[in-house]
Design a protein around this nucleic acid. Structure first.
Lengths: 144, 144
DNA sequence: TTTTTGTTGCAAATCATTTGCAATTATAAT
DNA sequence: ATTATAATTGCAAATGATTTGCAACAAAAA
């Protein structure tokens, strides 16, 4: 769980420099349960660094995403992206209905959606199950 | 299945005027299996109406979405939306783990994702199962 | 320290999408 | 059919999110 790993170690592991700005942003993501827009993160960041710039927010978030520290959610309704600490806490698979091969799917498409559904249904969502199925590349070829 | 309903009847049902431009756009969506960007739709539309404007594309797509003729997908990677005919072919639910109440979820979050996963795994995806679960508004309140 | 390399702030650019408005077209009313 | 009405379109310009070039700066390596 990323949340409990020291920032310093996360940055080292990712091979990026530890800076005041990145530290602030990672802390914000760690503290936050809900996904945030870049703008919201910016506002929170300004409370801790009066001069931090919005482009630094975007650049840092993009690095975090490329290093799997964060994930980016594109909710249906919004015209802007939301960002969240990568929870890495559950896993989905896609299964071949011919040979039964399973492979992991590394990004969960539901995280942002849960949030969206919570707002629309007034449910408090605890979890979900998702299974994709189809034909793997080999079995797909065999069929023809 | 929307695909097999006459455009004229779709427009009437939705209470919007039948115009050449809307007709072209609905045909493009009907003919296409894959989701398309507004730009891609625009290019295809230009082949049929030399003077159709990009803002008409956007306006029309937004109307189609509000009338549930089309759906909008926000894939993780892309910074632009994709649009697709609303297939209306399967249904998901959210279930209350306390009282077992079920309510329908009208937009499937997986459609665009399947497409994305196909590209990344080389699977041919046939379908998926998704179930969300949590506490409904009443049960949520009771707990406190 | 000094050097090297990566990171930041700023301003300007870019790109997708939306909007105001006048001209045009579809439908309803005559 | 013809006219009146209300909705739709094309155009140009605006908007809003995100990215980028560049010079100044800060972190890590030497």
């Amino acid at each position: 769980m990323l949340k409990y790993i020291d920032n310093k170690d996360i940055f080292k592991e990712c091979g990026i420099k530890k800076t005041k700005q990145r530290n602030i942003l990672l802390n914000i993501l760690k503290e936050e349960e809900e996904p945030l827009t870049a703008e919201e993160i910016f506002i929170k960041a300004r409370e801790r660094d009066k001069y931090i710039n919005l482009s630094t927010i975007y650049r840092t978030l993009n690095i975090f995403i490329s290093k799997d520290i964060a994930i980016k959610l594109n909710l249906e309704k919004e015209n802007k992206s939301m960002f969240q600490l990568n929870m890495m806490d559950h896993q989905h698979h896609i299964r071949c209905i011919s040979c039964n091969k399973k492979i992991r799917i590394d990004k969960c498409p539901i995280i942002g959606y849960e949030y969206f559904i919570e707002e629309n249904t007034n449910f408090h969502i605890i979890g979900h199950k998702l299974e994709l199925y189809g034909y793997c590349s080999k079995c797909k070829d065999k069929k023809q």
